[in-house]
Each structure stands twice: as structure tokens, then as C-alpha cells.
């Protein structure tokens, strides 16, 4: 298996190439589009399935529960003599719970984003980086065999791509 890639100057050329590749039988999984700025594209399946919101909510809950446990258990575990002063103070602890919830939500969202966007993966390099940096749009496609590779090359050529 090897990868074919083409560089485009214009968005509509790139989208056209992508549509044609799909018609050739490539799945969305095979096709990767890279650009130096976010492009206004049609919704695709992968896009809608982001769980970042859900994770941030879960992270927030986790942080809040953690803060509740921390404040309450720490205060209780201390066995401090307080001469009747409250040792567990929900009003005051609410502030810490809030802050830790927010922190939990932020960290969870970050973690989920890194995971979903496939950042920090070993072996995934920036092969087309220098081309993307020039402002071009790169469409890379994984080809299972030689015929498919030829198909891909043909599509790229027909859409005005510069092969890389």
C-alpha cells in the first residue's frame, strides 16, 4: 500500500478531486485533505461525530466530584480541633468545586480534542507540510494496489493537481 498525493491551488479543484476519488471507490477513510487554513467544506460523517462537548461535561463532573471529595475528606481526615467552628463548609467549598469542575472540563476537552484530531501520534509526520505551508491544498489518498494508484493519479491530473 502506498499513498498518492496531489497539491491544489483552489478549494473547488480539491473538492472536485475528492468527489471523483469517491466515485472511483475510495472511502472517506482513504482520503485526507490538508490545508493551511480551515476550509468551508460540506458536512462529512466524521465531522458530526465529535464528542468533545460530552467529554468536557464529563470532565467537569469528574472535577467537581473530585473537588467535593478533596475538600470534604481532607477536612474530615485532618481531625483538627476547631472548637465548634464548621469543618465542612458547603458554601465555601462550592467555590473550589466550581473551579475544579471548570479545570476538569478544560482538561477533558483538551484530551479529547487531541485524541479526536489524532495529534501526538507517533509516526504521523508532516510529509506535505512544506507544500501546505505554501498555501496549497493537499489531497492524499491511500491506495491499496497499483491500479487504484493509477486511478488516483488520473483523477488528480484531471483536476489540475500538481503531483507530489
Amino acid at each position: 500500500m502506498h499513498t498518492k498525493a496531489g497539491a491544489f491551488d483552489k478549494v473547488n479543484e480539491a473538492t472536485m478531486a475528492m468527489n471523483r476519488l469517491r466515485m472511483e471507490g475510495f472511502t472517506p477513510k482513504d482520503i485526507t485533505m490538508m490545508s493551511s487554513e480551515p476550509l468551508p467544506l460540506d458536512e462529512d460523517d466524521e465531522k458530526s461525530r465529535s464528542l468533545i462537548w460530552l467529554f468536557s461535561i464529563l470532565g467537569g463532573i469528574l472535577g467537581g466530584v473530585g473537588a467535593t471529595l478533596l475538600t470534604t475528606l481532607a477536612s474530615k481526615q485532618m481531625n483538627l480541633v476547631t472548637g465548634g467552628m464548621p469543618i465542612v463548609a458547603p458554601w465555601a467549598f462550592g467555590i473550589i468545586v466550581f473551579e475544579m469542575s471548570a479545570l476538569g472540563a478544560i482538561l477533558a476537552a483538551l484530551g479529547r480534542m487531541v485524541y479526536e484530531a489524532r495529534l501526538l501520534r507517533r509516526g504521523v509526520g508532516a510529509e506535505y507540510g512544506s507544500v501546505v505551508a505554501q498555501g496549497k491544498i493537499v489531497v492524499a489518498v491511500d491506495c491499496a494496489d497499483e491500479t487504484r494508484a493509477q486511478n488516483a493519479e488520473r483523477v488528480f491530473a484531471s483536476c489540475g493537481a500538481e503531483m507530489i
Binding site: 485532618m78 483538627l80 480541633v81 476547631t82 472548637g83 465548634g84 467552628m85
Partner: peptide
């Protein structure tokens, strides 16, 4: 003075001190 101390350096004893 007691509740504002962040480290419980000042606190209340059972003898009201």
C-alpha cells in the same frame, strides 16, 4: 481571623481560646 487563614495557623480550641 480564623476562617481566613489558609493554613489553619489560627484556629479555635475547645477551651474557647
Amino acid at each position: 481571623c480564623e476562617p481566613v487563614c489558609p493554613v489553619y495557623a489560627t484556629y479555635h480550641t475547645e477551651e474557647g481560646l
